[in-house]
Design a protein around this nucleic acid. Sequence first.
DNA 1: TCGCTTCCTGACCGTATGGTCAGCTTTGAG
DNA 2: CTCAAAGCTGACCATACGGTCAGGAAGCGA
Lengths: 210, 210
Amino acid sequence: MSEPERLSKRNAIRLENEQRILSAAEKVFAEAGFGGATMQLIADMAGLPKANLHYYFPTKEDLYREVVRNIFNIWLHAADSFDNAPGPIEGIGAYIDAKMEISRRHPDGSKVWASEVMHGAPVIQDYLETTLREWTADRAALIQRWIDEGKMAPIDPRHLLYMLWATTQHYADFGHQIETLNGGRPFSDKQWKAAKDSVKAIILRGIGAV
Amino acid sequence: MSEPERLSKRNAIRLENEQRILSAAEKVFAEAGFGGATMQLIADMAGLPKANLHYYFPTKEDLYREVVRNIFNIWLHAADSFDNAPGPIEGIGAYIDAKMEISRRHPDGSKVWASEVMHGAPVIQDYLETTLREWTADRAALIQRWIDEGKMAPIDPRHLLYMLWATTQHYADFGHQIETLNGGRPFSDKQWKAAKDSVKAIILRGIGAV
DNA sequence: TCGCTTCCTGACCGTATGGTCAGCTTTGAG
DNA sequence: CTCAAAGCTGACCATACGGTCAGGAAGCGA
């Protein structure tokens, strides 16, 4: 991603602190939203004085923007499994696996993303209009090709994509609700597998993948 | 719901103002989140002085709680169409219709609800643990009965419910994203119908409803 | 009309927050 | 070793926010 910088002590410190701050910020923004999050709380959670945060990220918005950008990249990369697949069973199956894994490993990131979009995407509107738009058009075209080749039922590709996003992200964004309905306990390994399998089973059968 | 009160001028004013405030609050909470919303903005949007808000709703939390309670009730009522259905095609089909309609008519409410749950349900945790838990158990049992009667494929009822919630609410919560991907234009009547039909087609086929 | 209750509101207050800054310490190239 | 740049931070500031309150206006039963 970036050229291998010499890892002087300074660079190490910089990287370490930026990472601590971004990690803490992701959690706090997820729990409290942009408006409810405070720089003081992020600083405490990162174990740094507040003024130090402003040294690395001049404003709260700068910090927030960086958090959202990170998440968006993870989000996009989940589609690698989508491409080069021979058909919907492999492609969409792998995509569901990848996105469910993101929901499990990065629930905070997913929540921040959801919050950002729900509030009208004030910070990443340009990404939606460029990167995401292209991404979606490409995948919709791929799905349409599968349909034309008789590999799945004729379904509006976009609504299928929305369903994939909605369903997989739900396990992160509404994780608290699901946990409550699970007797207050987080999903076990077995339950996560069951969730993945259920989602894949319903959707793959639902689109008539052969 | 309540006994028919005498509609004196006082009562009329009270009802009118409470409604204006709740309506404005729903919009502002949806757009900015609890932390980002300000009483001043809600007041301006309702066309009342801020102090008047505090006359009807002593604190910001009281107002917020009332907004969330309203949404939760709408949410629960959508399940009326679920019950007394002879099988999954009618029951789940009607439920999808009802919830898609809610996403269309009350997108702000849906967002407030999503926000509340994402932030750990600080205000309505007790509802989740009582009302929602019962509601879910009842519907899961109903779905299981349909499975046992051979009316649909054997699928974990809970994961099916999660998929229904996720998919239908996505059209409200992520409405901005969908609108952006739709060329910046909100869905037309025709597009809403297509969305409903797509969701129903995929899910009903996906659960093997006969 | 009287008098009590409800409704209304401008002005005000304490606090918490995002952000600044002057001056300190640490690092590392020459 | 020198010294400029980078890293760090306690103390501070202006602002905006949630909430209060005294006192006036309007409604309404008797």
